[in-house]
Structure formats: C-alpha cells, structure tokens
C-alpha cells in the first residue's frame, strides 16, 4: 500500500463505501497480504501433510530463526528504497558479533557488549554512506569493497579463533519472556516502529521521495546526501541489533562471516516487495519475506523433500514469489494508468 502512496490515486467522486472497498482491494492486492497469505497457505499445506509442523514450539522456532534476518532486512529495505544496496551486511554481522563477544569475554559490562555492535555498526555504515553520498561511489561497488575489507580484516585480526566461555548474562536471544523467545519481540517491535516511522515521519517520506525521483526530491528541498547518510545509519543500527540477536543465540561465537547471509537478507527484502529500482517497498513486507524464507526452509524438512533438492525447491518458491510481486505491481500500474 505504501508502495503506491507516492503516486496520486485517480480522482473519482467515490462514495465512502466505494472508498472503503477500494481500500480493501488495495490491501488485498498488497505484497504484504500476498506474503502473509503465502505463509499461511504454505504452513497449512505442510501441516496437512505433517501435523507436527503446527506445534507451537515449531512455529516459535521458525519465527525466532527469522528474527535476525528480518531485522537486517528492515535496514536493507530502507537502503534499497533509495535505489542503493548493501552486500557487506554478512561480513559486518561477523565483525560486529566478534566485537560483542570479545567485549563480553573480557569482562566488560554486558550492556557495553550489547551496545558496541550497534555503535560500530552505525559508524561503519555511515562510512559506507559517506562513500556513496559524498564521494559518489555506487553502493554496490562501495559495499563490495567493504565486504572484502571486513571479511579479510576479521580473519586477519582474530585468526578465526572461536569465542568460548561467554558470561551467562550475555545470551539475550536465549531468554524467553512469557515463553516466547526474545528475538520475536525484537522482530515485531522493530518492524512496527520502522513501519510507522517510514510512513509518518518527514524523513521516512523523504526516503521514498529520493528513491522515487531524485531530481524532484532535490527540487522540493530534500538533501539527498543527508537522506543517504540517514539511510545507511539506520541500516547500521539494524545490522547491529541483528548481530545481537544472532550472536547471543549461541554458546560460542564463530569469528567468521556466516556464509551467504547477505543473499538471504537481500532476498527477504526483495520478496517483501521492495522495488530494486528504488522508490517503493515496505518494511512489513521485508519481515514477512524473512519469515516466508524460514517457513519454506523448515516446511520442506517436514514434508520430506530430499536434502539434495532443498535448495532447488527453495529457489523455485522464491522465484514464484518474486514473479507474483511483479505481476501484482504491473496490474496496479495499469489500473492507475486508466
């Protein structure tokens, strides 16, 4: 829905009822609704085949495992909305996790170990933002370079040693207030905050404006550079929080870059309906995208897809989701065009 707010709706003398109907239709046609429907239908299909899938514990596992991807995908979505991309997130995740673990293991206060990844995440992403906004290096190049630097630097500094014997209080993600794993609270709360902020704050709207039409945004007095810095800063914040959820889940921290995570995060954002060309997309879609990916992964185990075909089926389902989004978008465009 937010996807199209930047475009004026066709003028019509619709009655309140007509407007409501139109609103309902817009909602039913939104990528968020389609994704939510996809998650539910897929879950039901798997559940019909293997009822154990529907157990509360399993559903909570899926959500909990989606959380760090979802939170990172929130930041990624905002970056992609401005027409940029960040492929260094996985490397950053590895670096920040190591920083947090090293602080915790060297008897610094726990809150510092939690805060550090956020602060460093923001700083590093602001640096990327600086490269992109002020030095005019395309984001894909800047982050490709940063990925190398972070990945190599991490091994160079740590030698790849794992971090053991973390203090008990460090494991934030293992806590389960009210029987629900902590990462789930983070995922929903952050998504909600981001969704509200993107929709109602001036900066949020400016982000869409920059992604939608740079020139028009500039003419209307929006500083593109400032917006880009903000966007990468937010991404850093999200990667920082995502790191905490990721790193405090395990008893040991692996001082390496988790393989292929950047692709999972970008995929979550993309199937969440963010347009890679910029200008549209929602954070709720990104969260649902992350959940859908995990549901597919988990569901396939439950319906006994051969392990050799797991990846292919996953790729196929992702392709289908993307195509649905494309067709939906096209129909909306032509409806507006009329």
């Amino acid at each position: 829905m937010t996807a199209t707010t930047s475009k004026p709706l066709p003028q019509s003398e619709a009655t309140p009822l007509g407007q409501q109907l139109r609103g309902l239709l817009a909602f039913l046609g939104s990528q968020e609704f389609i994704l939510a429907l996809g998650i539910v239908l897929l879950s039901l299909a798997v559940y019909a085949d293997n009822p154990r899938f529907g157990a509360e514990r399993n559903l909570l596992s899926i959500l909990s495992n989606s959380a760090y991807i979802a939170v990172a995908a929130l930041g990624m979505t905002v970056v992609i909305i401005t027409g940029n991309i960040d492929i260094s997130v996985a490397a950053l995740l590895g670096v920040l996790g190591t920083i947090a673990g090293q602080l915790a293991v060297h008897d610094y206060p726990i809150w510092l170990a939690w805060l550090a990844p956020i602060v460093f995440g923001i700083l590093i992403e602001l640096f990327i933002g600086f490269l992109v906004a002020y030095l005019r290096i395309p984001a894909i190049v800047a982050t490709l370079g940063m990925m190398s630097v972070l990945k190599g630097g991490l091994i160079f500094v740590t030698g790849g040693a794992w971090i053991y014997d973390l203090p008990k209080g460090f494991f934030l993600a293992q806590r389960q207030p009210l029987g629900i794993p902590m990462p789930i609270y983070f995922m929903f709360a952050l998504t909600l905050l981001m969704a509200i902020w993107m929709r109602y704050s001036a900066t949020g709207r400016a982000i869409y404006a920059v992604g939608g039409n740079r020139e028009a945004a500039r003419l209307s007095g929006i500083s593109e550079k400032r917006i880009l810095m903000t966007v990468f800063g937010i991404n850093g914040l999200m990667v920082g929080i995502s790191t905490i959820l990721f790193a405090t889940q395990f008893t040991t921290i692996q001082s390496t870059v988790p393989p292929g995570v950047e692709l999972t995060i970008i995929t979550a954002a993309v199937i969440g309906g963010v347009s890679i060309l910029g200008g549209s997309g929602t954070v709720i879609g990104a969260m649902l995208g992350a959940i859908l990916i995990r549901t597919i992964q988990s569901g396939m185990i439950f319906v006994n897809v051969s392990a050799y075909w797991l990846q292919a089926v996953q790729g196929l389902l992702i392709l289908l989701t993307v195509l649905v989004d494309i067709f939906r978008r096209r129909r909306q465009m032509s409806a507006i065009g009329k």
Binding site: N65, F250, T252, P258, P259, S298, I301, N304, A307
Partner: peptide
C-alpha cells in the same frame, strides 16, 4: 530417520536440529 545438510554454518545446524526435534518429537 534422516540426513540433513548444514554447510559450515552454526546457525543452520541450530535450525536443523530444532526442525528434527519438532518433526520427530
């Protein structure tokens, strides 16, 4: 019962173990 891959990824191994337990109880 079954063999599942986890690459060299701690998070994936974690998730796979959860899935196996949830699946077979």
């Amino acid at each position: 019962l079954e063999t599942v891959p986890s690459e060299e990824d701690q998070q994936l191994a974690f998730q796979r173990a959860q899935e196996l337990v949830n699946k077979y109880g």
